[in-house]
Design a protein around this nucleic acid. Structure first.
Lengths: 388, 388
DNA sequence: GATGCGGGAGTAAGCGCTTTCTCCCGCGGC
DNA sequence: GCCGCGGGAGAAAGCGCTTACTCCCGCATC
């Protein structure tokens, strides 16, 4: 078949696998066999006691337990995983761990998956920071496949490019086929090709929340509303913007047929961070000095907007009302407290965690949407009566 | 499940390991052997091509590469780990992922460790949320030992109880002995017993930062300064409080010998969250209505303090100055912007990441302290001249 | 033309578990 | 009193890789 292959091992020289690496400075770890020897049983029995899935006589069990304790034995997860074809790892992909939005979700997911049964304290969450980069997302998916992760939770907005969607779908299909449970949290449902079951999804009602938020501003009397959007090509960005526009569309804004163009003009795209909000606010003010309200894509951006307005000498909400999205913990504490849309991130994360652990049946249709709630606080008020 | 009956199979039926679980719905994953067969080489050669640590002829290598691509082969990390006695996992223990303080550190650590060499994109960070619970910390340490983690980064304040310290030390000693690299970040150095090398440490200058912060208030003219501390028995809490007291000790406060008792009275312990700050501020106001400044254990707590003061109708910094610690991103954006102490969390995390990856030599003495910087902003000002 | 070398490839021995067979033993039933 | 049975426990076959040894072959050396 292949060249160079001889074979013919003539002399009975015993081959040796890994013998030379014994005398490391690192004393050899205790293995199942050591425990077995100490307890005077076979390693199979020790394994059985440890996993508790096979009847072992009380006395024997006790002896094994003692040996385990005396030797401070800790099972080798990788060997176990290999032999049993299981894994203790669950991947959690987030755009940015340092962002409380993801932190809250990750924290809830993690609490859920490590709250496992006794055997050893559940699974371990591998939090992967994609930084919003599609490539990183794919890389991590591969890394998780390599680890044969028990499950994967994808959180946050999806990049809406056909190419990337296809790539992610392919990875997820493979993962699902090999038994990894997939859950999407805060990103739109996905359809897997060739009969694959679509992953369970915990979706956020971004569109509805955004609509209600803008309706709130409209009802206060605002008509010149700026919108600081997130990065284009991301599902969350699109949904929130759509909700905003939907509210505007049914309003009685005096602009009639030009309404859409006007809304377009008062929309600035940026990233989901503070600096982006700051810059965008200035830009909006330039485009429409008569602005009476600004809606931001999220709370962090809203903070940047507030900073810019303040630097411009405008008061909130006296001169301009500001609203955010997400209701992160700090939003209630800033001054003025931010009007925003609350997403039950904790609850969503917990739900995702239960789903990925198989502790919760997937919702009918595969998609569960968590509602959003408008939180009206001090940063929004009726527009001042200007000299217009 | 298990046998149950005997079965006296008399004929020489060959034993079979795992044969029955072939026909799962989950098509059998591609293995090294499959790739080898397809490329017409031995599996050893495939392994060598993949790991690039052994000379393989160009043609052969190309053939293997093609086979890998065609079969969409992804190496089984667990088998590899078992065989090579290595691991792709690095544990990162944090008190609370949802807290930006830890989020920032974790994010930096992660960026550092996954920025690995080509072989496969570096290691995977396992972010473990201890919730500040000593038990959880130990549990995670065991779980990481089980996974034979390549490294572990412990972040955040340590619980200062002899018992817990001993337990952690024991776990770390074992981990270190088995080759796991240990790094402490933001927690005080530790000494391992019996000759074990102490883990590399990236410490924060909490004491110095706190001292300079209080000195700043003193220099503004404040003399009645409340302190909202963190949970007792935590190193960070203690260090910050010590810094604060140190500054007071050398000040010319008019209270003379009673100074210490006074400082004691103006210190309230709580947790590191907003609610704690809120309650503590009210309590301080009750104890000393003449208070002109409040120093909080961290920015989050400071936010709670601000909220309480506002609810009491007090202006910041007009009536009471407020200061925090950490300089989290939002601190510059709240109104008034928070005077605080900046800790270069990003830098510290990156340093810890490099250390745990062995890409940076441990600092001499094992401990590298990152400096802190006083950030004076709008929330502190000279005390108003009250009718006193 | 025989010998020495070094590059390139294969063989197979484990890594430390899990799990399937096998097997031993004491006991109640016919 | 012999057979059948079920509870307990052991032997051993892998899981899918890595890697220490071997070995072959072509080429430069003497």
């Amino acid at each position: 078949m292949w060249p160079g292959g001889r074979g013919a091992v003539t002399a009975p020289v015993p081959l040796a696998g890994h013998p030379p690496l014994q005398e490391d400075r690192t004393e050899m770890a205790v293995t199942l066999a050591d425990v077995a020897a100490r307890a005077g049983v076979s390693s199979a029995t020790v394994s059985r006691v440890l996993n508790g899935n096979y009847p072992v006589a009380g006395g024997t069990r006790e002896r094994v337990r003692r040996a385990v304790a005396e030797l401070d034995y800790v099972v080798n997860g990788q060997a176990r995983a290999l032999a049993a074809a299981t894994s203790d790892l669950v991947g959690v992909l987030v755009n940015d761990v340092a962002d409380p939005f993801f932190g809250l979700i990750a924290s809830a997911v993690q609490a859920e998956i490590s709250a496992g049964a006794e055997p050893g304290g559940g699974k371990l969450a591998v939090v992967c920071n994609t930084g919003g980069s599609p490539e990183a997302e794919l890389t991590y998916l591969t890394l998780l496949e390599r680890q044969r992760a028990a499950g994967v939770v994808l959180t946050g907005s999806a990049v809406e490019s056909a190419e990337h969607t296809a790539a992610v779908t392919a990875r997820l299909t493979r993962l699902a086929a090999s038994g990894t449970r997939i859950v999407l949290c805060g990103r739109p449902p996905l359809t897997l090709p060739d009969g694959g079951i679509a992953p369970a999804t915990v979706a956020f009602d971004n569109r509805g929340g955004a609509r209600r938020l803008t309706e709130h501003l409209l009802s206060l009397g605002h008509r010149r509303i700026g919108y600081v959007s997130g990065p284009v090509e991301r599902s969350t960005t699109r949904h929130r913007l759509e909700g905003h526009r939907a509210a505007l569309a049914v309003s009685d804004r005096p602009l009639g047929p030009d309404a859409e163009a006007y809304a377009e003009r008062l929309t600035v795209h940026g990233t989901y961070d503070r600096a982006s909000g700051y810059d965008a606010a200035l830009e909006l003010l330039r485009r429409e000095p008569e602005l009476t309200a600004i809606v931001a894509a999220n709370d962090t951006v809203a903070l940047g907007v507030c900073a810019a307005l303040r630097d411009r000498g405008l008061s909130i909400p006296g001169d301009v009302s500001v609203a955010g999205f997400d209701d992160l913990p700090f939003s209630a504490d800033v001054s003025p407290a931010l009007t925003t849309v609350r997403i039950p991130l904790q609850e969503a994360g917990a739900r995702a965690g239960k789903l990925v652990m198989g502790r919760l049946a997937p919702p009918p249709g595969g998609v569960a949407t968590v509602g959003t709630e408008l939180m009206v606080r001090g940063s929004t008020a009726p527009p001042a009566v200007r000299t217009a």
